[in-house]
Amino acid sequence: MSLELLLQAAVSGFLMGGIYALIALALALVFGVMGVLNFAHGDLLMIGMYGVVLVSAATGLSPFLAGIVMVPAMMAIGWVVFVLLIRPIVGSAPLVQAQLTIGLSFVIQSAALLWFGADLFNVPSELAASPIRLGAIVISLPLLIGFVVALVASGLLAWFLSATVWGYRVRATAEDPVMAQLCGVPVQRVQRWVFVCATGSLAIAAGCLMGFYHVTPVVGLQFSVLSLLIVVLGGLGDLRGAMVAALVLGVAEALTSAIFNSASAPAALYVLFGAALLLKPHGLLGRGAAV
């Protein structure tokens, strides 16, 4: 195993981590504002990925643009999901929330299997053929674009939360919904819009992913688990922590796969996760909720 190999893994893992960050941010925001840990998060993302495939095939748009086109559609889906399923379980026992969202994941996964079959879909792109080379290190162009788009989207989110009235309302709701309600924040409306926008942002993440990745009916579960790990690793309710955790996880994932050349390699990632959580129970930045 050469240094070059490790460097390559670290770089591509880091870029991947940027896209994970966008996915995990949406989950962290939903959890922060309504206390619901959404196990169907990855499946909502998967809907976005299928959407991107369809839009790209129909219009010839690049997956990144197709992702942006998909935003309103995903917001509409978020709206429906929130009204039908999420709102009734805000404040319920965690077990009920977990089970309901797992049920939703079930439904989305089987619906995808029904409509799209088990075949995998991707968006073939010319970009993949012309990577950027830095010495021996190769940077995939779609991955880089995905990283940048995800970074911009995350930056917009940070700006929105810290500099707009609605951002204050969101943060107030996350801090203490009862107090926010008393201060005149329309908590229900904030929660609905946060869920709608978080789901919408998944369309952008889906576009980033489809630049180089593929979609099958089972990818949802993988991304759900991944984003859950990130949110907990970053510290519950800590958005900046989630960003850092996503990057760390992306790099760790690539490095473990590069270092351990075995079927057991992914186990190392989960052991690392466990160890990190034990050492930093309040998140990597130590600022997560103690719930």
């Binding site: 070059e4 190999l5 893994a9 991947m16 994932e253 690539a254 796969s257 590069a258 050349n261």
Partner: peptide, 9 residues
């Protein structure tokens, strides 16, 4: 999700 490391190897 990332096959660069094994391919690079």
């Amino acid at each position: 999700r990332n096959l660069l490391p094994p391919v690079k190897r």
